[in-house]
Amino acid sequence: MSGPGAAGTAVVDPVVRAGGGLAARLPAFVLLLLAVAYGFEASRIPYAFASDPLGPRAFPLGLSAVLALLAIAWAIRPGQAEPWPQGALLFEVVGLVALAFLTAWLFDRAGFLIAMALFCAGVAAMFRATLVQAIAGGIGQAVLWWVVFTKGLRIPLPTGSWFTGS
């Protein structure tokens, strides 16, 4: 829960710090917007008939009202939150997410083996593997899971449309 305070400032209880300020309330406002948009969409759900008196709109509409009220309550008392990652750490978190999406994109294009070997090597490197460990671990895991799934469990995995031309 506690993060390092900014250099040079007095030591402030991080909980109290998280409780004040606009930045701490931003997520609550985002949620409020989301609730309103959800309610707006709910009010326009097209339907020809309903066999029950409530119909398909009422439950989501009620829910959007509840969510909006909760969002306002959250904005008034933001409560505790953990500090966001900064600097190199933020770069790593974003990098891991980007790598994961790239892997999903490569999954049936380059095939399971190549996509996962790259992915596992990348993730291993982020978790402090040496270069050799990362490469060996990446290839090893990709081959291991490939064998387990395609040979052991007989679940087919993509071989890569770039190579098979399909």
């Binding site: 339907y47 020809a48 008939f49 829910l63 969510l67 909760l70 409560g79």
Partner: peptide
């Protein structure tokens, strides 16, 4: 408050998709 918001978000996610009673896509 956060527990309630979490539950409400989970509830909201279930309203996505076909509504079997009315046949409406939500």
């Amino acid at each position: 408050i956060k527990t309630m918001i979490g539950a409400a978000l989970g509830l909201a996610l279930t309203t996505i998709g076909l509504d079997p009673t009315s046949g409406a896509y939500r």
